[in-house]
Nucleic acid binder design. Structure first.
Lengths: 161, 161
DNA sequence: TGTCGATGGTTTTAATATGAAACCAGAATG
DNA sequence: CATTCTGGTTTCATATTAAAACCATCGACA
């Protein structure tokens, strides 16, 4: 269609699919705040400083995608809380990767006012590392997308010529 | 302003800043393709299937932000190529995190047609791990944002009451 | 128990961003 | 020198966004 954002939901690439779900301006920030313990609509809205209608739409989408779930508020009131599902929590590695990159490249010296630290030790984390199965560290040039064999292939169906 | 996307460029949070730069529908996909070796405008446009004006705008933004740079095409023609800078290449960890998450949560069984593998061994990578400085593995609940002390503090300037 | 403010949204409106297609200039090719 | 290919820009219709106004329900409290 014309002004409609292209739908990435059934791309073959896993990156594209992920972005189809959480690849907009706000979703990852909502997840960041949820991970930091913010659960209520108003809390999120104030912390993020975003328009309420947009927050509402995003929360709905994240719930639909099983990243957030609604639960009764923990303080006994009838209001509801938004909590991360296991699927949502697993996005923390994306957040860490973004944090480490942003920290390195998006701040002038001295401008950074927050560090991301381990809650227990209050010390920074190690930089993430990509490791091959043999344990060796790999870099940006080592990524490769390998097509899978046709999955339904049984005896006698394999490519022959 | 009214219909304008809120500017995240000077947020205090590193995640927000990162998203301000590469947090839109297309940027990370462009970077993925660039990492896969695609360098020419047409190549990118065909591979991504996106509108040319949007690609043009995104490339411009990525160049402005120092993630891509333009270079003369390698085949001797007068056309230009878009290549990742070191800053851009370092986004590979974000891509890997998104890939691993998407692979796990965004595909029906058997639907996945590509694996992300180590170029040399053609075998999958290990899942990324978040490690504290002591080497221990940490999870989503261990993230913490620690405010930095005021940086300019010298002798005698410290908080006293 | 009735009122009043807080909470959690939805609706409306104005502005901007997106996508598709048409258009165009310069480079390559013959 | 003509023709096609490449790399865009322009135009237009539509979608998405942000801000503000609005509104229903909940909670606190007199």
């Amino acid at each position: 269609m014309k002004g409609k954002r292209t739908n990435l939901d059934d791309a073959a690439c896993a990156i594209a699919r992920s972005l189809g779900v959480i690849g907009d301006w706000w979703s990852l920030l909502i997840i960041r705040d949820a991970l930091a313990g913010k659960r209520r609509f108003g809390e999120l809205q104030k912390s993020l400083g975003m328009a309420k209608n947009i927050l509402s739409a995003r929360l709905q989408k994240l719930v639909e995608h099983g990243i957030l779930a609604t639960a009764p508020a923990s303080d006994g009131t009838a209001y509801k809380a938004y909590v991360l599902t296991p699927k949502g929590k697993k996005l923390y590695l994306v957040l860490v990767a973004l944090w480490q990159w942003g920290e390195e490249f998006c701040f002038a010296p001295g401008e950074l006012t927050y560090d991301m630290v381990d809650r227990q030790t209050q010390k920074p984390f190690q930089p993430l590392e990509l490791r091959a199965r043999d344990g060796g560290v790999r870099g940006p040039g080592d990524l490769w997308a390998l097509p899978r064999r046709a999955p339904k292939a049984r005896r006698g169906t394999s490519s022959r010529r």
